[in-house]
Write a protein that binds this DNA or RNA. Structure first.
Lengths: 234, 234
DNA sequence: TCAAAAGTGTTGTAGGTACACCCATGG
DNA sequence: CCATGGGTGTACCTACAACACTTTTGA
């Protein structure tokens, strides 16, 4: 029985939640988009395998990349080549100027998640279902953890952090209440003391992630609207 | 690479959170206690494999048994026989008069989780760590889902349900506020109209699980005290 | 002086905790 | 009538949504 890892890497680009996909160079599903991933090596644990595949196929990586196990998919005929069980991982990346398109010479690219969830873009294997799980997990974890900061660069403004919630949840959030809430939560954010001057408007204070990993009290959100082509202001 | 399933079955017996363990009949770890589980068959998905192993080894089963995937453990040397990856499942069972000790003739028995977590009882492989994950998951899910009812028989009293929270979390809960809270949550409980007369005291109303699977607003619990030998009244 | 973005103050309300109090049964 | 457990009412407090208002910049 073969065991692989597949990674759902999420980021926010152009005010949309996007997922990292690679074009398959070999059969089956040659030319089709798929999640980055591959076989676990003989002396390798699953998480290192996920990090390695990500680095090889997409040039994304580093210790700082947030990575957690999602779940395992083991349906008997999910891979036409035979019995392949895959351990899926969820990664969250900031929208860095990342040279996507890795050393493995395979074309990697970002794709809006709504295009995958709506099946406008068809992925190889059962990868669309895996992306669905990843998005669900990310949406839930924003509620009760400080995961949102994983979408942000090392220093960021309050508005950037708020956009994470708005884009991932597909809702609009009152900037003023949000500000109070996250600054009151212990160890969520650390002010750098610096300010960023934008093209227009008052300069925004800059923050860095704090040591907290859970958020109490949690961000409450009554329901998840469906994932749609970017319209958080409805 | 071999793939197995292992199941953490939790229940409440004698006002303690207990886990179902089987005594290993073969090497490695012969005679040692372990989680029920075994190899996935060629044409079998992981969850059916978990249900089958549970039925074979512990005579526990049925469609009604709550079962969810926990996570996958794939450390290279977790099994001395060679490379074995295991998909761990979490099951929750009511304290039925279950004939534990299954058709497979292997001795199955309940063990208080604190004895496992404290390492007073040493389990085979990395199963102690898996139990730890299962307990953590159950404790978290009581907060924001209706999972607590899975510990109860089909009809139950308010006090039985409250004992679930008290035992799993190791805290004491105000009976009066708890009553209001769960009766206000939509579709959590359905009153049967019946009452149960106990040895002493006013008869308690009987309830059945409602259709709700999530709990809103969630049960809040500021912190998890460590799992100890049964003392929820501290 | 205006537009735009950042940030504060205030008010109404929902839901939480703590606890006094009443209800129904067996002995 | 008392002990025991079931269930309601109420006061107080915290946290959140809504929204008016002030601050700081570039053009």
């Amino acid at each position: 029985m073969a065991v692989t890892v597949d990674v759902v890497v999420l980021t926010i680009r152009d005010d949309e939640l996007q997922v990292l996909l690679v074009e398959r160079g070999v059969e089956p599903f040659r030319g089709r988009l798929a999640l980055p991933g591959g076989f676990i090596r003989a002396e390798e644990d699953a998480e290192p395998a996920a990090r390695r595949e990500l680095a090889e196929e997409t040039a994304l990586g580093g210790e700082s990349l947030y990575l957690e196990q999602l779940r395992t998919f083991a349906a008997p005929h999910r891979d036409p080549r035979g019995r392949v069980v895959t351990v899926a991982y969820l990664a969250i990346a900031p929208d860095l100027p990342v040279p996507v398109g890795g050393t493995d010479a395979r074309a990697a690219r970002w794709q809006p998640v709504w295009s995958v969830l709506s099946r406008d873009v068809e992925l190889a294997f059962d990868h669309a279902g895996i992306v669905e799980h990843g998005v669900d997990r990310a949406r839930s974890k924003l509620e009760y953890t400080t995961l949102a900061t994983a979408f942000c660069p090392e220093v960021f403004t309050m508005t950037e952090l708020r956009r994470v919630y708005e884009v991932v949840w597909g809702v609009s959030i009152d900037a003023r209440n949000f500000h109070r809430k996250v600054t009151n939560a212990d160890d969520f954010l650390e002010p750098t003391g610096e300010r960023r001057v934008l093209e227009t408007g008052r300069p925004a204070a800059l923050y860095r992630r704090g040591p907290a990993r859970t958020l109490f009290p949690p961000m409450l959100r009554t329901a998840f609207p469906p994932v749609l082509p970017s319209d958080p202001d409805s």
